[in-house]
Design a protein around this nucleic acid. Structure first.
Lengths: 194, 194, 194, 194
DNA sequence: AATGAATGAGGATTCATTCAT
DNA sequence: GATGAATGAATCCTCATTCAT
């Protein structure tokens, strides 16, 4: 049995291990050796596949973004109406795939990474833009010109809820998170109608 | 030049240098040597006064909290009426003393530190509780039983705006930050009245 | 030149280097860097294999004890009669493997280490118990109930001679050392017969 | 009240503190700051009086030797006959002033110091010579030409008992120590008579 | 493909010692 | 006489990274 085609498996294992370890340790100060051990291989192999610790971190960020994007797409496809679509984006942001303890923790740490890593900053901007645009489109249908303002509002709320969740030390409470953000949405719509 | 009574001066210089350096470097991975150099002394002296890097970080957190607390108190003293008080808390949160580039950056990093450092976690809880209670009291006068829900909403917004600011790479825009949070407040009050 | 299976070689080289360096420096204040350099490797590798300086020291103690134990066993196997066995233990205590300048010096320093290091203390107790019991058994055959007293006497003499040797600064004089302890044995046996 | 004549008091306090701290810590790795603190002064003052840590240690050794010498002289003055004098030396070696926990511990550590410090080695040789000669003189009266051999024997026993005591971790047992060494003396005298 | 071996570069911390007051 | 202030030098230890096999 030749050991061919191992590369994607190894890379994937490392990416998952990275998120797990960052979540577990509660720091970016995770060693390559730790990540590699959890992924079941030597740190030398991790370097072989990724070249540097930096690249491992970036791959983990991309992984999280990819999953998040997929969840958003899925939710939007199943949603009806403008408001339905906004709610779908909100709910997808706190869905099972993304709003897990380690993922949220890793996410917070990637925010920190983005302060020094240009590529990490770029990825984060992509996320922010995507989130904003996903909100903006259906919001236009709901509130017209006020959509931009409302998109900023909801984006900030989502990030704020994430931040608080990352710190709480408790298992994330999806329902409560959604309720908080949807509360702002509801208030904003009433305000608009008034 | 008397050489006595240096301790408070040195400690203060180190605390300020810590915030500056964390903000500048964009990481908690700041060496004691860097901090000490910026504060104009040897790293040995920094250890002499604080005992460990951990203590230096905690002192910096306390410093930020102290200033924030003072600003809140000042703003509340000058405010009139329930809504005035809520607005005062919001504005104080983005006041000149606290909503500066380095302070916001350092603050984000202290959030991360709190994931591993019990004392840092304690300080953070103090901040969160204080913020919530500062909002809760005047909100009760405005919306009664919905005050708790609204306090959570505004707290999350404030943190979300902070988080986004930490990442923007731009000098913080106080006015815009206040506008965002006050927007949520306004919408919530209309919603309540409806 | 295969580069596998280096671990035992490296560990061994470090253990020997430790004893040599302690003997040469005349202190426990030997740096890991010194030990590693003498063993022909980087200090990082030394830490890689032993984890800490403490563990390096303990391994060196164990090494000395192991050799000492082997010499005792060998001498006892070749000895005849009760008195022959006592003499064998005495001679083995001052044999070439154990009664060398650096080993004696290192040994003295391990005595000191045992004052603060529980594991070092344990190893030392093992040595003391082993020495005593090795003397006790054949002494029982010679002097019956007085064996315990005599074992203490001879043990103290052996340690005293070691201590003096560690200080002499001269190459150890095996013959003289053995003569001193055997002198006490002879006198004790005469005393017993009288 | 002028602060004159403080020097001898300060020096004395430091010397005592040194012995106490070495005994307490079980290491020579005692900091000047620790010693000074226990002596009730700043480490700067300790340096002012002694110039260096080395000198502090040497003064402590001299102090121990001085007391030991005084005890020997006192015991010899009160002793009768050759054997009485030998016994007096033995007993003085384990007298209350010298055979205390911290003193014995400090003594062991000074043995270690002597391996690197020429002056400490010199002091130790003085002690050894003095002990030997104190034993030699009365032993000549008892066993004539065998006195040298016996003096070596008893000296080694005394040091051996000290060493074991330093390690035992128990409060020193004066009576047992004396018994052990006097046992060798008794046996040696019987051997001589035979 | 995979890894044990190996290291250079750093970083926190400690401490004897000096100096100005 | 006495001390707080201050530091350079050293040491243990960690880790990303490289390399030979």
């Amino acid at each position: 049995m030749p050991k061919v085609g191992m590369e994607p498996l190894r890379r994937d294992a490392l990416v998952r291990a990275t998120i797990t370890e960052i979540g577990r340790a509660g720091t970016l100060d995770v060693t390559v050796a730790q990540i590699a051990r959890r992924a079941g291989m030597s740190s030398a192999l991790a370097h072989h596949y990724f070249g540097s610790k930096e690249q491992i971190f970036l791959a983990a960020m991309r992984h999280i973004l990819t999953i998040y994007g997929a969840e958003i797409r899925g939710a939007l496809a199943a949603a009806d109406g403008h408001e339905g679509r906004v709610r779908a984006v909100i709910r997808a942001s706190f869905s099972e795939g993304s709003f897990r303890r380690e993922v949220v923790s890793a996410w917070l740490h990637f925010y920190v990474l983005a302060q020094t890593q240009p590529e990490a900053a770029r990825l984060l901007r992509i996320y922010q833009r995507r989130l904003r645009s996903n909100l903006l489109v259906p919001l236009r249908g709901l509130v017209g010109d006020r959509a931009g303002q409302l998109a900023d509002r909801l984006s900030a709320m989502i990030d704020g809820v994430y931040l608080r969740e990352a710190l709480s030390g408790q298992p994330p409470d999806r329902a409560k998170a959604v309720r908080l953000v949807e509360g702002v949405l509801a208030a904003s719509l009433i305000e608009d109608a008034a």
